[in-house]
């Protein structure tokens, strides 16, 4: 799965949870600009953990942009042998 695939899957997760314009979900968009707060972020990570079969450690939840989430997922998938 490429970074692009991760991004697309993450987009699906987010669009399923939030009423937002898909075009706003760029890699550069900050979660704050999308009105996604820290709790919502946990919720997204929860769904991503299920979807990508990874476990996000507590101290990894320092995320600013959509791209940060994508990188985190990709890194953890590699580290946790889920690629």
């Amino acid at each position: 799965m490429s970074t692009m695939d991760t991004y697309e899957t993450l987009k699906e997760i987010m669009l399923d949870k939030f009423e937002m314009d898909a075009s706003a979900l760029t890699m550069e968009a900050t979660l704050e600009s999308l009105a996604i707060d820290s709790l919502d972020t946990f919720d997204i990570i929860f769904a991503a953990e299920e979807k990508f079969d990874i476990k996000v450690p507590n101290d990894e939840v320092e995320i600013k942009t959509v791209g940060d989430v994508v990188s985190l997922i990709d890194r953890l998938r590699k580290e946790q042998g889920k690629v």
């Binding site: 009423e19 709790l39 919502d40």
Partner: peptide
């Protein structure tokens, strides 16, 4: 409620 509010 909007979707994410209703779900939470």
């Amino acid at each position: 409620f909007v979707k994410n509010k209703a779900a939470t």
